[in-house]
């Protein structure tokens, strides 16, 4: 059995904080930051990174295409 884990990289200067990715994530990984970016928007970040499976739902709905998704397989004992 192998375990698949994911991670997202969010271009925080491009993010407009619409929150669509946060509600689309089936694993509750993302949240909006309390800090703001250069444009004054609270940006999305991985609040719970260990739960990410790399399903890419967040990146698929992102209107500003600022999310890149990475996925890696880890062998388990």
């Amino acid at each position: 059995m192998a375990k698949i884990r994911g991670a997202v990289v969010i271009d925080k200067e491009r993010c407009k904080g619409c929150e669509v990715c946060v509600v689309s994530c089936p694993c509750g990984v993302l949240a909006l930051s309390t800090e703001v970016n250069g444009k004054g928007y609270a940006y999305s970040y991985m609040a719970n990174p260990t739960a990410c499976t790399g399903c890419a739902s967040c990146a698929i709905v992102c209107p500003d295409s600022c999310i890149a998704v990475y996925r890696q397989k880890f062998p388990t004992e």
Binding site: K3, R5, G6, A7, V9, T50, C52, G54, A56, A59, I60, S65, C66, I67, A68, V69, Y70, R71, Q72, F74
Partner: peptide, 15 residues
């Protein structure tokens, strides 16, 4: 605690 490596071969979706 495995960390996903942010490298092009692991990239599944992007801009």
């Amino acid at each position: 605690q495995e960390e996903v490596q942010i490298v092009p071969e692991n990239r599944v979706y992007g801009r």
